[in-house]
């Protein structure tokens, strides 16, 4: 493929991706996830709550997954759009939950 055509497709794709403008992205640690909701504590310490509709995509450890697999304590990135007075997640990317330290009591 010519470089010009590849550059054109990248520009067009970037233009389409900018349709995410108007949304928010949050990075933080999962406080709780399930029942159509995820709550993060972002790196500024603020609690962020997002509704999670059935169509939202959930990725855990780099693989497609479900909201139930997102565990408290895991790092997560939420891409969301404003919905009414709150935000609705479009995509949640989460790291696998942290492993307990040896000797730490099981939760």
């Amino acid at each position: 493929m010519s470089r010009a055509a590849l550059l054109a497709s990248a520009v067009l794709w970037a233009a389409a991706a900018s349709a995410h403008e108007g949304g928010i992205d949050a990075r933080g640690t999962v406080i709780r996830a399930g029942a159509g909701q995820i709550v993060l504590r972002d790196t500024a310490g603020k609690e962020r709550r997002f509704e999670v509709p059935a169509r939202a995509r959930v990725v855990v450890g780099g693989a497609p997954s479900t909201l139930d697999a997102v565990k408290p304590g895991a790092r997560a990135v939420v891409h969301a759009m404003r919905h009414g007075r709150g935000f609705e997640a479009e995509e949640i990317q989460a790291a696998p939950p942290p492993r307990p330290r040896p000797g730490a009591p099981a939760r």
Binding site: L6, S9, A10, V11, W13, A14, A15, A17, S18, D25, R27, R75, A76, V77, Q93, A94, A95
Partner: peptide, 18 residues
């Protein structure tokens, strides 16, 4: 997928954070 520089940077930041 081809992405613009801004989205590439955001994606890399997301991956580093995770």
């Amino acid at each position: 997928n081809p992405v613009g520089p801004r989205e590439r940077r955001e994606r890399e930041e997301d991956e580093r954070f995770l």
